[in-house]
Write a protein that binds this DNA or RNA. Sequence first.
DNA 1: TAATAGTTTTAGATAAATCTAAAAATTTTT
DNA 2: AAAAATTTTTAGATTTATCTAAAACTATTA
Lengths: 217, 217
Amino acid sequence: MHSFTEENYLKVIYHLSQADTGTVQTNAIANGMNTKAASVTDMLKKLSDKKLIDYIKYQGVTLTEKGRAAAIKVIRKHRLWEVFLVDKLKFRWDEVHDIAEELEHINSPVLVERLDDFLGFPKRDPHGDPIPDKDGNFEPSENVHLHHMTSGKSGIIIGVSEHSSPFLIHLEKLGLTIGVPLTVLEITDYDGSVELMVGTQRINVSRKVAEHILIKL
Amino acid sequence: MHSFTEENYLKVIYHLSQADTGTVQTNAIANGMNTKAASVTDMLKKLSDKKLIDYIKYQGVTLTEKGRAAAIKVIRKHRLWEVFLVDKLKFRWDEVHDIAEELEHINSPVLVERLDDFLGFPKRDPHGDPIPDKDGNFEPSENVHLHHMTSGKSGIIIGVSEHSSPFLIHLEKLGLTIGVPLTVLEITDYDGSVELMVGTQRINVSRKVAEHILIKL
DNA sequence: TAATAGTTTTAGATAAATCTAAAAATTTTT
DNA sequence: AAAAATTTTTAGATTTATCTAAAACTATTA
Ligand SMILES: [Mn+2]
Ligand SMILES: [Mn+2]
Ligand SMILES: [Mn+2]
Ligand SMILES: [Mn+2]
């Protein structure tokens, strides 16, 4: 089995390789892991020895099929536990990420399958992220980030790409939760902030916020 | 917070100090932790520095109030998760111990309270062990081990003091599960095995098995 | 293309938890 | 109360994951 640390590295590498295509850089991983580049290099050698990543010195890394499968297993667990916490234990969507960061490392394949069954095989977690099935398959969401939309376009909020409590509480205050329909009035040239119509309300969100809201057109 | 390892040491020390009174010996801990006496000595120094145990070289250890409270928190989590696995996820009682060994280290006080609520504040786990409440209180069971009973006495099975899958599956085969009423016919002098009446069935269990069955008179 | 800036790797240390082998202390037996 | 047996502790290594500082490499800019 893989250590907690190895699993967290794999998850960070997976998410970075989703964000932009191409190889993942040492510094980006260090940032994602809240650690130093030197520590990352040490771990990259280890993950490479285990055939979880393809690694060429100075050239960045990509996940192997084995590494990708391992990363997706962890992500599946994370998202299933988040559903459990919200649906069954009545946590709010902004409270569950940190607990799921711990629960995602529990190692029992049968537990994951039983949990999935107990939850009714949910397709998405409380933040709108797709939940991989037991074979690792999921519909890669065709969603667009709010800051990439253009004036006049409409859609509904399908998810968020940041899970921190302050961010989610902020969204809630603005009434911007999953399932809410909206129309983009304008993307401001000056600061990139987005002017929205939500129901009868006119709302302005900063570019920083818009970058973490996912819209289904 | 305490590391997983520290928590496991505290739990082992707690259980050993329940088993027989007086101080707990280094070798007993080493046995319980599947480690070597030298490693235990190292850890005892660390736990002593943290004021979790009272430790005098060569004289064994006892838990401080702080140490006892920490141990009981872990035990509470272990037993609540076992109830979750059996009641909600439909695991058998012999399948849950190892998974609970991992789940017991998840660190979120609010999660434990929500879980307790979700499960309906159970008083006992699937093996009949009492579940400490959020303040650490529980009724210390006044039960007697089967091998300490005498001929003619009756009672019902209230719990088991071993949680391994082979043992529990063996009990299940004999029909000796929690809640079953029985009468002791004889404690054999020769090998300590116990002759039982369970319903209309006459059953013989070895001393080794009898040592791990708890009876409420 | 040569200097500069930025990124990544190596070298060497540290902290946690473990180990083996040997020394020290305690308990049991004669 | 010695001697023997057992238990416990120390000394010194090892493994994993981390760090800082310096060296090596790559990319950018002039
Ligand atoms: Mn999350
Ligand atoms: Mn994690
Ligand atoms: Mn158990
Ligand atoms: Mn444990």
